[in-house]
């Protein structure tokens, strides 16, 4: 839990308590904003509802701006943040499989549990499928391992690849985000409305 536990401000045992509280808050927000309905996610693909895109794009933009302001004010050190390593081909193929799963099931793993919690049968079926997928992946891991570990590009970010100032990148990224919102609204206005 961020700077509190490593600095000894609160004991380590609080990790789980805080994780549960954050998880409950996250689930509540997901359900309250309607993400527990599979039509919400499917709406992005059919073009009648872009809330998912807007929410996740906005959260990414807001958090990156906030992090860089904190870094500017010396409250945190961006270079100390952990960057997930990039496995290029594994990420592309995994992303495609996950995208098909999103489209077919109408849930992402998080929202499926959210939907199951309010008793949606399709969400429960989705979770069963998800578990089977995990099992198959685990059993086939020996065959998948070369792909899983290949094309490791290390802890890279877009700023490293494009070699531009992160501040400019954030500004461009923000404008792209807003452009995509405008575009998605335009698409939505062209598509037949779905009420659910």
């Amino acid at each position: 839990m961020g700077p509190l536990i490593p600095n000894g401000l609160i004991p380590v045992e609080w990790n789980y308590v805080i994780a549960i509280l954050i998880g409950m808050a996250f689930g509540y927000i997901l359900e309250a904003s309607g993400f527990s309905s599979s039509r919400k996610l499917a709406g992005v693909f059919y073009g009648y509802d872009f809330v998912v895109l807007k929410v996740f794009f906005t959260s990414a933009v807001v958090s990156v701006i906030g992090l860089y302001y904190l870094d500017y004010l010396n409250f945190l050190d961006i270079s100390q943040l952990y960057v997930q390593p990039t496995y290029l081909w594994a990420a592309i193929i995994g992303g495609m499989i996950m995208g098909v799963g999103f489209l077919a099931g109408g849930f992402c793993p998080g929202t499926s549990f959210c939907g199951a919690a309010i008793g949606k049968i399709d969400a429960i079926v989705f979770i069963i499928g998800l578990t089977i997928g995990i099992f198959v992946f685990a059993e086939a891991f020996t065959f998948l391992e070369p792909l899983f570990n290949s094309s490791n590009l290390g802890h890279i970010t877009m700023v490293d690849i494009l070699d531009i100032s992160p501040y400019w990148f954030i500004l461009i990224f923000t404008i792209i985000a807003i452009g995509s919102f405008v575009f998605s609204d335009w698409v939505r206005s062209k598509v037949k409305k779905v009420f659910y």
Partner: peptide, 13 residues
């Protein structure tokens, strides 16, 4: 809201 977001991002630059 969009203007505020761009404004804050431009602030970093």
């Amino acid at each position: 809201l969009a203007f505020i977001l761009v404004f804050i991002a431009a602030g970093l630059v």
